[in-house]
Amino acid sequence: MNTQPILIIDDDLDDKEFIQEVWKELPYLNELMFFTHPQDVLILLKDEQIIPFLIISDINLPTMSGFEFKRKLLGDTALNYKSIPFVFFSGVASNEQIQKSYELGSNGFFVKNGSIAELKETFITIVEYWQKSKVPQLRKVE
Rank of each mutant, 00 (worst) to 15 (best):
D10S: 06
D15C: 12
W23T: 05
D12A: 06
Q20N: 12
Q20T: 03
F34M: 09
F34K: 04
I8G: 00
M33N: 11
E17K: 14
K16D: 02
F34T: 07
P27G: 07
I8L: 08
I8F: 03
E25W: 09
I9C: 06
K24V: 11
W23C: 11
L32N: 03
P5K: 06
Q20I: 05
D10N: 15
P5W: 05
D10F: 03
N30I: 07
M33L: 14
P5Q: 11
V22W: 04
Q4C: 08
L29F: 12
E17P: 01
K16F: 05
L13M: 14
E17T: 08
V22G: 04
L26S: 03
I8N: 01
L26W: 01
E21I: 12
D15N: 15
D15I: 15
Q20S: 13
V22Y: 05
E21K: 14
V22D: 05
D15L: 07
E21G: 10
L13V: 11
W23V: 08
N2T: 14
P5N: 12
N30F: 01
P5A: 10
K16C: 02
I8W: 02
Q20E: 13
D15F: 13
I19S: 01
Y28C: 09
D10E: 13
E17R: 11
L7N: 07
D12Q: 08
M33W: 14
L32H: 09
D12C: 08
I6E: 04
N30E: 10
E21T: 15
K16G: 00
L29V: 11
I6A: 04
L32T: 05
E31M: 07
D12Y: 00
T3F: 09
D11C: 07
D11Q: 06
I19W: 08
L13T: 10
D15H: 10
E21H: 12
I8V: 10
I6V: 13
L13G: 04
L7C: 05
N30T: 06
P27V: 15
E31I: 11
D12S: 03
I6T: 09
P27F: 07
N2C: 12
P5M: 08
W23S: 02
Q20H: 09
L29S: 14
E17I: 12
I19K: 02
Q4H: 13
K24I: 10
D15R: 01
I9K: 00
D15M: 11
F35L: 00
Y28D: 03
E25K: 14
M33P: 00
N2F: 13
D10Q: 10
D15A: 13
I9T: 09
D15V: 14
Y28R: 07
L29D: 15
D15E: 14
L13K: 14
Q4K: 15
I8A: 09
L29M: 10
L7A: 03
K16S: 09
L29C: 10
Y28K: 06
D12E: 08
D12R: 02
I9W: 00
I6P: 00
Q20C: 05
P5L: 05
D10K: 00
D11N: 12
N30Y: 04
K16I: 14
E31S: 00
W23D: 05
Q4G: 13
D12K: 03
N2V: 15
I6H: 06
V22Q: 07
I19N: 00
F35S: 02
F35H: 06
Q20M: 12
D11F: 03
F35A: 01
L26T: 09
V22K: 04
P27E: 11
I9H: 00
F18E: 09
N2Y: 13
K16Y: 07
